[in-house]
Write a protein that binds this DNA or RNA. Structure first.
Lengths: 200, 200
DNA sequence: ACTTTAATTGAACGATCGTTCAATATATAT
DNA sequence: ATATATATTGAACGATCGTTCAATTAAAGT
């Protein structure tokens, strides 16, 4: 004896995520959200509680998609290292065409927010950490496959990869020349390779 | 037969820069600016024209300070490569203590803004390019000092350095553990070294 | 001392912000 | 069909946004 919501929660969150991803936290207003997800204020507040509530759902959705993508790439290749390489290509190159921003939503959020939005900031940090942990897991697997030196700390290698990706994706926002961008990825990975492989 | 302004333009711009640097473009309101620089709306608009005008002045001031710092470090050492290393330490480590944000204001701005704020976005991009060019100049000098391989493209090396710094400074915002951060810089530079030195 | 000119003030503007809520609509249970 | 419960609507709230401008203040020229 009730009434079910008419909106598709998953689709709504996806649209909200894309909007926040493109415009950033502060530049995205409730009015923008209302238009993007085609819901009126009352419904949004009933479902998410606040503008920040929608943002939290967006962050959670984004990190889940990212981890799923990584897992999917892993299933397509025997090589953990190659999986990471293809992930980098995916987020730095292909993301430029389809995604709302060349940047990672999580890194963008960490860059934009301060302690004033403490809860959201911490959530974005934690989400980045989850991605880093997924990287570290693949690094460990790469060690078991003898793709990288076993003397390296997988977590440290994961951190290094995060830094490379973040730097690349910010740079991608300033760089229209796709050739330069390709060369940057190649260079960054050449460096990572020498770092990853240790003394050889 | 006139009246000179009572405020110190340089000091005002410095305070405005620090505010924008810490809070970002969208989160900084005119009210915040009024309080930070101790000027009333009329005076601000007479001097800078708009909120964006203040931001433009901030960007210009920031890039000028950065280039000055680089030049100053260069004067303290014979080694161009060592100059770059000390610059990285300066902006990644020491900046954490004093600066309004661990991040570079220019990178932060490029990360936050979109085509909606086209003029400011382009200015921040151009400012980043000026820093990159300064890096490239030092890379060329480093080649002349036989500190790095002459086969490398200085501009490409400069781009690579920018990416490393950007990645590091974003990561610095998520990382409270200073030891991890130190290790990251060491690692990043170890990679850069191998890249910079070419075949040895 | 008086005039001139520009710098400064602060109230106020319309627009938009995030949010609330009484009114309405509608799916489900009886 | 009717009652019940809840999803949805959209006007409206007070706060704050960037900005304007008539009034005031004060330094410089005569």
């Amino acid at each position: 004896m009730s009434k079910k919501p008419r909106f598709d929660r998953q689709q709504v969150i996806e649209k909200a995520t894309n909007l926040y991803w493109g415009k950033g936290y502060h530049a995205t207003s409730m009015r923008h959200l209302q238009d993007a997800i085609d819901m009126r204020p009352g419904s949004i507040y009933a479902e998410f509680g606040s503008k920040d509530g929608v943002f939290k759902a967006a962050i959670e959705y984004y990190v889940q998609v990212s981890l799923d993508q990584l897992e999917q790439l892993r299933a397509q290749s025997d090589s953990p290292l190659n999986t990471l390489q293809r992930f980098v290509r995916l987020v730095v190159i292909e993301s430029r065409q389809n995604a709302p921003s060349s940047m990672c939503l999580l890194a963008k959020t960490v860059a934009e927010l301060t302690e004033e939005q403490g809860e959201l900031f911490e959530q974005a940090k934690a989400a980045l950490k989850r991605v880093e942990d997924a990287f570290a897991k693949l690094m460990t697997e790469a060690q078991q496959h003898n793709e990288i030196s076993k003397q390296k700390d997988p977590q440290q290698l994961a951190r290094l990869l995060q830094i490379q990706i973040t730097g690349l994706r910010v740079y991608a926002k300033t760089c229209d020349d796709i050739e330069i961008l390709e060369a940057m990825i190649e260079d960054v990975f050449a460096h990572s390779q020498s770092g990853l492989n240790g003394v050889q």
